[in-house]
Nucleic acid binder design. Structure first.
Lengths: 203, 203
DNA sequence: GATTTCTGACACGTGGTATTGTCAGAATAA
DNA sequence: TTATTCTGACAATACCACGTGTCAGAAATC
């Protein structure tokens, strides 16, 4: 019985290599889900997109849903980081700021169609665990939208939870339709439409 | 080779019996989907809920999705008939009429939780064919909402397609959240929240 | 160069459901 | 009553993808 000593390959430790494969799987998953949809994407297909074999899938993820969640959170992090930056660094009226944040949101979706499909469409209704992640994100998104249109020095009575949920649902539905149309209209026009709905939060 | 002559059973012709079984399957499906969710509902489970065996499932439906669509359309017909009645027979301002229609919508969802879950939640993201049905319904719903808040004698520039889609998405999202909460708030309060979003269509 | 660890390809077993097939018995008509 | 059609229960098969196991060869250390 020899104890396995971790050995460097290509200058990387075993842990580093494992992590690198994990990242490749996530990126492969984003692409594969974008092309085929999560439902039609087998473990095998993801691994092929990542240039790895099934063996390594189970090294990093317990099952397909775990990878889906990881891929979703990767995209989610990118989006929210961007939105928060725009919101924080924007100097202007609440109206202008709202438009800027929404523009950023839809711009990201346009720039990365695969990620967009995963982030907006494929994530929904996969199973209880994934749905919980999606639900949490909708809440977070609601927070962003609410602060986005709130006048800076304003502590007003919160709009009801349901109204906020409804606004988020509207903004996301617009994204879905826009994606389905092949990004037919301009980012600016779409953001303007979405802003109309978001104004409900400021009233 | 004897030609099968249709024989009456329980006073019903072969066609009548077949149709009756079809109805039972649909009602069983609404209940089963409501309890278990479409994904977790096997053909066997539907048949048990209907008091029939698998044999009769394939007599009326090619596959699970076909039954799902049939069940959805059954519920859909009930809902739209009701909404149209309310809208048509309501005399009052656009504002009042809008509130009345929305109240009717959410009241139906509350009165039939199984149907509601199917109509609002379970139908989404099952597959391309079913998604098409769902997409068509959202359009139809958008029409109803638009006419609902439109001042009677008014032909104004249509709000953009995306805005309408967004409003529908908002109303439906509110329904989802409300259902998930176990119908925590009153129908009236929910309808009022939804109306806030629908007003975007009138602006 | 010898040895050990890592990698990638592939094949097999597994589980669960859809779908079809069979058949005995119940209900009906003659 | 007798023959025929319908009904419901159950068995058999098909199928699909997951998840695991095996193994030869590549890449590294000594």
């Amino acid at each position: 019985m020899t104890v396995a000593r971790a050995r460097n390959y290509a200058g990387l430790s075993a842990d580093e290599r494992r992590l690198a494969r994990r990242e490749r799987l996530i990126e492969g998953a984003i692409r594969a889900y974008g092309e085929l949809g999560y439902r039609n994407t087998t473990v095998k297909a993801v691994c092929e997109a990542a240039g790895l074999t099934e063996r390594y899938f189970y090294e990093s993820f317990a099952n397909s849903e775990a990878l889906l969640v990881a891929a979703f959170e990767t995209v989610s992090r990118r989006v929210f980081t961007c939105l928060e930056d725009v919101r924080r660094e924007h100097s202007g009226t609440a109206e202008e700021r709202g438009h800027a944040v929404l523009r950023a949101y839809y711009q990201i979706l346009k720039d990365d169609p695969d990620g967009a499909r995963l982030f907006v469409i494929e994530i929904a209704r996969v199973g209880p665990a994934v749905d919980a992640v999606w639900g949490a994100l909708l809440l977070q998104f609601g927070e962003v939208l609410a602060r986005m249109v709130a006048p800076d020095s304003d502590i007003k009575p919160k709009p009801g939870e349901l109204v906020r949920a409804g606004v988020v649902g509207g903004v996301v539905q617009i994204a879905k339709e826009w994606i389905r149309s092949g990004y037919a209209r301009s980012v600016d026009a779409v953001a303007a439409d979405a802003l109309k709905i978001c104004r409900v939060l400021a009233a």
